[in-house]
Simulated scan of single mutants.
Amino acid sequence: MHGQVMPWALDGVALSGEVLEIGPGYGVTTRWLAERAGRLTAVEVDPVLAADLRWDLAGRVEVRTGDGADLPFPAGSVDVVVCFTMLHHVPSAAQQDRLFAEAARVLRPGGTFAGSDSRVSLRFRLLHVRDTMVPVDPATLPDRLRAAGFAEAETGLGGRSFRFSATTPP
């Protein structure tokens, strides 16, 4: 994740200013971001995981318990929003679209939403038996992001993952 996925997913993304990570889970990506981002805040829906991250990253990252589809931030208050390998854990496409709209809402004009997620494969399906798995189609994601309020959106494929990047209107 640190050596390949993160640098690839964030290629060309300036991690300066207020950076928000949605859905850090256990914090693998958060630890990488903490070394490279401006002021980093993470929002995790699972209160146990959020508490663990809060303790582990105290003084380095502000960790809040919350839902990415209902972010506890004012409109236009963040420079960059990122999320990694978590979109497929959002329980429905409609909830994913709400998360995209919330990312657009909290971003400042010209802000960036970027990240990555897994592509569907047999291995991916097996890893998610008895787990939430709502795959995101990288081919339709740019249209979904534009519908959520982004001006520009694109995806790229790589190995078992895809990356995405979208910007809010200036």
Rank of each mutant, 00 (worst) to 15 (best):
A104D: 03
G115F: 07
A103S: 14
Q4F: 12
G3C: 05
L49Y: 00
E62V: 13
A166M: 02
A104P: 05
A166K: 01
R36M: 02
P135F: 06
G156T: 01
V48C: 05
M133S: 13
H2P: 10
T168L: 08
R119A: 05
V28L: 12
R119N: 10
L49E: 11
S165C: 15
E154T: 04
S165G: 13
W32G: 07
L71K: 08
P7A: 10
L20G: 03
A103K: 12
M1P: 14
F124T: 00
A93H: 14
S161H: 15
G38N: 01
G76W: 03
T168C: 09
V82C: 06
E154L: 08
F124N: 13
G158Q: 04
V81I: 00
T168G: 11
G59S: 06
V136I: 13
L57S: 01
V28E: 12
S118M: 15
A103F: 02
V45T: 11
F84P: 03
F113I: 12
V78T: 12
R60E: 09
P7C: 08
L53P: 02
A153D: 12
F150N: 08
R144K: 04
A14H: 13
H89A: 14
E62N: 10
P170M: 09
A94P: 02
E102W: 06
L10N: 12
L15N: 12
D52E: 10
R31F: 06
L122E: 14
A51V: 14
S161I: 15
V43K: 04
L127W: 03
G27D: 00
L87G: 11
D117I: 00
S121N: 08
Q95S: 13
V78K: 11
S121W: 03
A69R: 01
R123Y: 12
S92W: 04
M133Y: 14
L127I: 03
A69Y: 08
D70P: 09
V78G: 01
M6D: 07
R60L: 10
P47C: 01
Y26P: 05
H88N: 01
Q4H: 14
G27I: 04
E21P: 12
V5L: 13
